[in-house]
Design a protein around this nucleic acid. Structure first.
Lengths: 154, 154
DNA sequence: TGCTTATAATTAACATGTGAAGTAATATGA
DNA sequence: TCATATTACTTCACATGTTAATTATAAGCA
């Protein structure tokens, strides 16, 4: 299989933008989030805050680095979010005894309330998407995505 | 299939964060971009600028709305980017004759240079990922993602 | 112990993301 | 034709994304 001499060799050209993995991932995420955003908005949180709350609800007390990693939020962003979220009573911040560098985070009462109110809405939206797209295809997709995530460079 | 009375019903609980479509999409995109970021950085552009350049290279002159849509960039962000990118000679901005509202954009010489220099690097990185993950699995994945994108709300 | 290195957060500076409001040009229809 | 609505873009305000530099604490080691 050889490129004909009279046609330009595009093997080193960038892929068509609408058919590349980075763009497809971006568009797909945007499409999915368009279903959740109105609900989150109604509950007064943004995507990132919602991720932090869910991570803490899932795992109890964690240090900031762990939260950042699990919620896919960079440390400087999380630092800023900690202030606004503690001010709103969504999370609690404390120092780790034994390691004065670490900031420990846990969900606070208002965060629990939020989770109780928004959690079912979120689950319903997810279930709806799953039903429309096919539960098995969602499963396949998540598996492929998780495999892909393992290719992360350092 | 009924939830036992002595166990909490979690059918309306949020999905485990590490196994949800939004988070998996986010992590996968981050993993993929970690391979491209150093290259883009070496060429002095960020992800968004690179997307704009590629969209314009692919489709010639487009109005700002089209660019925003195809590159998945919000209009206010694009407005800001237009200034920095025209200042750097990467793109050209002009008014549409016939519709004074529209801003027409096209790639400029420095943008072409950038594309010629970074394009092959980008294609090589993509080919490497494709080889590691499996060309057929990438194809399957992109197909699933594009299907998913069709579920976009409103 | 004291010096050095490594780690965890924070801060700073500038970029884009996001929703809402504003402006200019065009389209619509009585 | 002219008031009104719509469209395309811009501006604003505040949020997070991103990299680099800084601070405080801990760990490693001669």
């Amino acid at each position: 299989m050889k490129t004909p001499a009279n046609l330009p060799d595009d093997s080193l050209a960038p892929r068509a933008t609408q058919r590349s993995l980075p763009m497809s991932l971006l568009r797909a995420r945007e499409a999915i989030m368009s279903h959740f955003r109105p609900m989150l908005d109604a509950h007064g949180v943004n995507e990132q805050q919602w991720r932090v709350i869910r991570v803490l609800a899932e795992s109890g007390q964690l240090d900031a680095s762990e939260v950042a990693e699990r919620a896919n939020i960079l440390a400087p962003s999380l630092t800023r979010m900690i202030r606004t979220m503690t001010d709103r009573g969504l999370i609690l911040k404390s120092r780790d005894e034994g390691d004065g560098r670490r900031v420990m985070l846990q969900i606070a009462p208002a965060g629990m309330d939020l989770l109780r109110r928004a959690g079912p809405d979120s689950a319903r939206i997810y279930a709806g998407l799953e039903a429309r797209f096919g539960k098995d295809r969602v499963e396949d997709l998540v598996n492929l995505l998780d495999e892909l995530s393992k290719l992360k460079a350092e």
